[in-house]
Amino acid sequence: MAVDRFPVEASHIMMFARSVGDDNQIYYDADYAKGTEPGTVIAPPTFAQASAQFDPDYFLRPKIGQPWFGSGGSPTGIKKESSGGGGGGGGGLHAEQHFEYHRHLKPGDVLTATNLPGKTWEKEGKRSGKLVFSETVTEYRDQNGELVITARGVGVRTERPVDQ
């Protein structure tokens, strides 16, 4: 995701750590963190994904005043049938995610995220028909322009919902 300004904040790190069931106090307690090897609160390894919060165009967040495809009075808020991708729900499924850490994030960092073009490929799936994969490489840079995390995500659109 492309983001102009992703401020890394302690309360966001705390909420993120809670959500992944991680009770390591380095994510919650600045005093405790002083006694750890990093010497400061840091972010959990997958925290960069929360840059979605700061992407103004992120399509999996309801936007004020705009239709949303989740249920309300009816099963979806979008009137017309969504096009293709039975696995749908807008954007298909997440197939792979890779992170390379040049350093770990900490509160006070202000990041930018830039997308580089990635590959696209197709495959025939046993459980969901034709699969279309697309890759995105995202470079996260800090307030000094230093590369801090390189992320590579692979999304997949399925022809129909994955057989269970």
Binding site: R61, G70, P75, T76, S82
Partner: peptide, 26 residues
């Protein structure tokens, strides 16, 4: 909780009505 923290509010993860009736997952 994860949807809220990460910012990924895809209804496939939190909206049982949408997921079963529109996306056709169990």
């Amino acid at each position: 909780q994860y949807a809220g923290a990460s910012g990924d509010y895809n209804p496939l993860h939190t909206d049982e009505v949408f997921t079963t009736e529109v996306a056709k997952y169990p």
